[in-house]
Design a binder for these strands. Sequence first.
DNA 1: CTGAAAGCGCTTACAG
DNA 2: CTGAAAGCGCTTACAG
Lengths: 313, 313
Amino acid sequence: MSTLIDVARRAGVSKSTVSNVIRGASLVAEPTRLRVERAIADIGYHPNAIARALKARASSALGIVVPDLANPFYAELAVSVERAASAIGFAVLTAHTECAPKIEEEAGRAFIERRVDGVVIAGVSLGSSLPGMLLDRDVPVVLASFGEPADKRLGVIDHDDAAAMETIVDHLYGLGHRRVAFVSQHLREYGGERRRVGFMKALAGRGLTLVDLEDGATAVVAHNDMLAIATIDRLERRGLRVPQDVSVVGYDDVPLAAHSRVRLTTVHSDAVEMGRRAVELVVAAARGNRHVALREMQSNPLVVRSTTARPPG
Amino acid sequence: MSTLIDVARRAGVSKSTVSNVIRGASLVAEPTRLRVERAIADIGYHPNAIARALKARASSALGIVVPDLANPFYAELAVSVERAASAIGFAVLTAHTECAPKIEEEAGRAFIERRVDGVVIAGVSLGSSLPGMLLDRDVPVVLASFGEPADKRLGVIDHDDAAAMETIVDHLYGLGHRRVAFVSQHLREYGGERRRVGFMKALAGRGLTLVDLEDGATAVVAHNDMLAIATIDRLERRGLRVPQDVSVVGYDDVPLAAHSRVRLTTVHSDAVEMGRRAVELVVAAARGNRHVALREMQSNPLVVRSTTARPPG
DNA sequence: CTGAAAGCGCTTACAG
DNA sequence: CTGAAAGCGCTTACAG
């Protein structure tokens, strides 16, 4: 591919001058600029971002770690991050980790070697080394959609899960449910127990305790929508009806939740805004040569649809 | 972050020697190697992939363009591409384009500036400039899951849509359907009419022609599963029953298609294998400094579930 | 077996 | 207003 030198030669100027017109920097004489611009167009020159990054000691690239793109919540978040990044000239390197510590570490290494300017983490394993290895090397990271402030240097954009769980319990209790279960995710995720714990606390406030799904529960709350939808599948294959026999509640409000065949009662959360904000925070930190060190909270409303009803009998 | 020089100083050797042990190249004396390795560990040194890429004139990065990650088929494909890439030390830059020509062009520019070694395209707009601009600059590209060999230089991993449509028509005709409709996608995608055309040809073989969905169709075939599922939603909101009043067929066999609330009759396609193969082809081409220039075809079986039945009456 | 030197393609003061 | 020079952090022949 052609280089600055090819352009310079063709325009009969020096590399510096070509560089100046490309970056729109300092005052270049009009006729010179025109000659250079024509040369660039003629040759079809595109500046080498790798060389530029080496010189600038900044890659204009972000890393994102996503546990599982099969979950539309993460997919939306990833798309949002990519859009926000490319809008300001940043590329994004994606790692799909399934919260596997080994993959996370490899992703961390790759991010560091490629010198990403910041990382957005949509989920990691419990006790993951990933945030720490990044932070220690001065790459700013923000946790999106989960995470307590384990490390002060982290940026966190979080859901108010505790409040959401209170709202869910209010809803269920109001319908008459007294025996409720919780379905945890299978990923051993950092913060993955938080909704469950919040849910149990909310139950305790009503004088209730968790029961097993198999043990006569009349309602079940799932850690997220995809689990809720899988739970509906499981229940119905066992011959139980939702919501007549068992009520089901999700979390996320993925597009599918509104489908006529699903109509899931769930907690709405805004993945798009979250991704946008995550990029904003991490890029600002990168430019300021500091960590994000900020915690924000998003509170999420309950959307009541048709998978919750009065308990049978 | 620390550099080769920091390591060299600490180990009391030259940059060349450090480079040699890192790359496992040429014979380095055992005690020297040990000293260098200790220095690397002490410092927490990670080689700068950007500098390496500049020197090597190869980024070890791939681009992938995905129309829409909300479609699980694309999500699976993207994950598969990323896995295959990272397994051989390649990073992947993702662009979500929604088949918008403007976004495609920006993505193309970004890929070129960042000097990706190859690009996997999961979908582009009709008449897109993207493949051409890449190909002309000698970056190998493979089209995954669609595409006629418009440009000999392209790699294509395709579905045999025509055969699949024949199978679908056989199935529907066998059930007794004579009035069938087709739901196209909204994206103005390259090759996006191919399934529809294949479907019409298959119908013609039975002496049938396409009717409008609103015009008394007893069965409808959708361009893909997500459209099929949205169509079910639409039909049911209008008070029609699936499959009692209208049969519905999809394409892709996304995980959701097997759900108890959906049980969609559809064509199974293997996104994971497709992604793996795409990376294999594009990386081999990049290493061989050539284009892929190869066309492969995957044939997909029909999976009959519960959204197709005999027509009413 | 080890190191000095050139070069990958840019940017950035600094002369002129 | 324009260009020569140094340097970003590596790799790669090539001497020694």
